[in-house]
Design a protein around this nucleic acid. Structure first.
Lengths: 120, 120
DNA sequence: GCCGTACTACGAGAGCTATCGTACGAGCTG
DNA sequence: CAGCTCGTACGATAGCTCTCGTAGTACGGC
């Protein structure tokens, strides 16, 4: 019995503001291989939004939900409902504003490691 | 009764090679506030070596040992014995070689957050 | 040779995390 | 409306992590 979130037709999800984004939280979010891969996929098409099910992850749906929540609560991604699907977008603008250059450096590092390890 | 580590006069500690350094490990190491602070202090004087006891951390010696081990095993710092003291140095060259620009971006982000939050 | 200092090892507890399975709600599609 | 798909909530479990205290080891100085 949720009091007042069903009427709008678009359930709202809590996101941290720019000021609430913590470096430790971002690093922790990205220190998990599954989440790092999600972020890399999102960054490949930065303007696009992808549903959770678009990603082919080696975990179950429950675990996927968990990882997306960690990413959202750390301020890395923004999630919005679109019908039954939940669309995910990288918060590149916010991250660049709070930590200029960090996201690019992280993505470059991840790409470099993926290349060395033979990952995609 | 350690078989053969006492004779050299300088006990050796295991460190990951450049190729063994993993981005996830580095991010995980830096996602702890205590360790992030250690790295910031080390980076402030990048050429210098500091003993573990040089840092004024809000945890006990046991916990300090633990944190330095995490930093060493993730490849962020290099530890060498010098008498009874264990000297710690940032592995800036190795990190820059494996993930160019990452360390600077991380340090800049940490400095920015510390400034905003009023930390030193 | 003995003591103090610096760090480690071990044990231990509280809390978080990643993972899963099952059951459920929200919204299309027929 | 019925059913399907997408995602959530909850419970459970195993493993890790951060923290500590105590006991122990290595080294330098007296």
């Amino acid at each position: 019995m949720p009091p007042a979130a069903t009427a709008s037709g678009a359930r709202e999800l809590p996101h941290p503001t720019r000021a609430e984004i913590r470096l430790e939280g971002v690093l922790h979010a990205l220190s998990d291989p599954v989440r790092l891969r999600i972020v890399r996929d999102l960054a490949a098409d930065s303007d696009a939004l992808f549903s959770c099910s678009h990603f082919d992850l080696p975990v179950t749906k429950s675990t996927t939900t968990h990882h997306f929540r960690v990413l959202r609560e750390s301020g890395v991604v923004r999630q919005t409902y679109r019908g039954t699907a939940k669309m995910n977008g990288l918060r590149r603008g916010d991250l660049d504003a709070v930590f200029p250059g960090l996201l690019d450096a992280l993505l470059a590092a991840a790409a470099r490691q993926a290349a060395v390890l033979g990952g995609d």
